[in-house]
Write a protein that binds this DNA or RNA. Structure first.
Lengths: 344, 344
DNA sequence: CTGAAAGCGCTTACAG
DNA sequence: CTGAAAGCGCTTACAG
């Protein structure tokens, strides 16, 4: 016997053809049965499933992607991992997507348009089945990439101010309303000079700012001098520094609405350090209800945002878009909750 | 003319063959030139690069993975995203891997062996080029999967206690030494009854515990009653609760070594709430130097761990393993740094 | 409802 | 140093 000239490239991997052989059908039928395509004889589906389980068959994602021009990846784009908010969003989305059989590709944009575009481009190379992206504001290049790719996409966190025929799929809550609601709580508590302290200045912070502005204007208490905006990243240290600045303002401020809890926590610690009584001399409120806000001294009044629910609902919506299932509304408002504690 | 019977499946995508045609060489030569394989005429490489740039060619990762049995994915396994420690580790690793042209697949194990195994299995389906995994302790099934897969792997955070021929690739620092060093600092400050408060009880926490034990034994001050271990997840609230418990211990404790900064921060807040003077009545120390520890009142003494450096160095090591470059030592010790502040 | 053929876009294994 | 052929493991597009 001469040596076999067969070219050996096969890994020991179980393939579709192996399943087909055992089930006694063609490979295409196996493919269809396993993907749950209708129009396959239920009896054959049964045989295919049996053979597949018996052999421990698992489809090769690369082969599938190459043939179908669509992978089982879902790209997720978030601004930061250092804000617990986005970690909660991400974990919930990832859990839901995994359950649906998708692999997540995570891109951290650092609030940078160029990085966002670059990350999207890299994700698109993998022909993702879907995209989950934070926010509604993206530059033209990014929007063009998304549109060209034809990949289903759900936006998280923000909701458009008005709905029309072109409304993108989005799951979130109304940041402006939340900002206004928190401000009204402070007003109801008798505060008159309420400052807004914002960092990062991303679109969601700006929407909270608008909400705050609206609420003050309703009462004729708006003063541009009460806007303290710093483009630096949000942190405890920055919150402390902003608190000290605002404390020196004249006429005196009697409440501060920080755009994120870490700033507010930093302010609370600074107040402790300086011996400023909170809420007597100064009321302090935050946003997001992050870890530790209920442990501070005094405990922090804030807005609880439903980021885990948003991540889950956005992923669920995306999966049903990918599967081409009947879609309900493109816009899901998950609301928010004011959490009043001792700092106001 | 009869209609063309050509089957239309092509996307408008630029392929290797397009580049080959323009460059006037065979597709295989393009493939080799672009992958930087040596043994291609430099003049041809030049032509290929030109043609490739001109057409804006980008290789299809799925086709590449299918043909070569290796994707450009790198799997990363970390326990949690809710501990800032792992976020820093992840971000640094991901940045380095992206620069090397790899896509990361992130799996969050929640300190659960079954989840870890499941996530690894899913990642392995994608035939990753490499693996980055947290810690050295994994169950038999996980170890078997890693070994079978033959995928290069680097372990992060931990270092094995002894080195032998089978030492896995790892980048981290000696947790035991760090635990002992921090304890010795407390001893040097005159503390005699030093409690260890641990949560989560993962392998790294246990190593810190051993270090603490060693240091106390050196001074004949070890007492098993000083070990406060709680398997629950680490949090500010838990730190506060543990502080209150330990405070009531008799004979009284004069210092507490918390296994993670969030516990210590919670303890500091509880002390403030209860009016317990820190460090006079009780010294408090943490571990990791997380965000906010330098903002607390008093500021927190802790151990600064080089997680960003670990992520970067581990990724760099992995990339060179993937590329088959000459390897230096399989073990990289990045050390740690004691940060003495006002709480001790 | 089912299948034979072709193709997705690369790389491997040979050969020269 | 270079290439023609085959193959990776699936799915698409036709046809019946």
């Amino acid at each position: 016997m001469r040596p076999t000239l067969q070219r050996q490239r096969s890994t020991g991997r179980v393939t579709l053809s192996d399943v087909a052989r055992i089930a006694g059908v063609s490979p295409i039928t196996v493919s269809r049965a396993l993907r749950g395509e209708r129009s396959v004889d239920p009896a054959l589906v049964e045989r295919v499933n049996l053979a597949s389980a018996q052999l421990g068959y698992v489809p090769d994602p690369a082969a599938r992607a190459l043939a179908s021009h669509r992978s089982n990846h879902v790209g997720i784009l978030i601004p930061l991992l250092s804000n617990a908010l986005f970690v909660d969003l991400l974990e919930a989305a990832q859990r839901t997507l995994r359950a649906g059989g998708f692999q997540t590709l995570i891109g951290v944009t650092h609030y940078d348009d160029a990085q966002e575009q670059q990350l999207l481009q890299e994700q698109l190379l993998h022909r993702p089945a879907g995209l989950l992206i934070t926010g509604l504001d993206h530059n033209a290049a990014t929007r063009a990439l998304m549109a060209q790719s034809q990949v289903p996409c759900v936006h998280m966190m923000d909701l458009p101010s008005r709905t029309d025929a072109n409304t993108p799929y989005c799951v979130g809550f109304r940041q402006t309303d939340a900002g206004a609601a928190l401000t009204r709580l402070l007003l109801a508590g008798g505060r008159r000079r309420i400052a807004f302290a914002g960092a990062q200045l991303d679109p969601r912070v700006m929407q909270r700012l608008y909400g705050w502005r609206l609420a003050l204007q309703e009462h004729g208490l708006y003063d541009p001098g009460l806007e303290w905006l710093n483009p630096a990243a949000s942190s405890l240290a920055l919150g402390g520094a902003m608190f000290e600045q605002i404390l020196r303002q004249d006429p005196p401020v009697d409440a501060i609405f920080f755009c994120n809890d870490d700033l507010a926590q930093g302010a609370l610690l600074a107040a402790l350090r300086l011996g400023i009584p909170v809420p007597q001399r100064m009321a302090i409120a935050g946003f997001n209800d992050l870890t530790g806000s209920d442990q501070m001294l005094p405990t922090l009044t804030t807005v609880r945002t439903p980021r885990a629910k948003i991540g889950e609902a956005a992923a669920t919506m995306l999966v049903s878009l990918i599967r081409g299932e009947a879609q309900t509304l493109p816009l899901v408002d998950l609301g928010f909750e004011i959490v009043q504690r001792d700092s106001t």
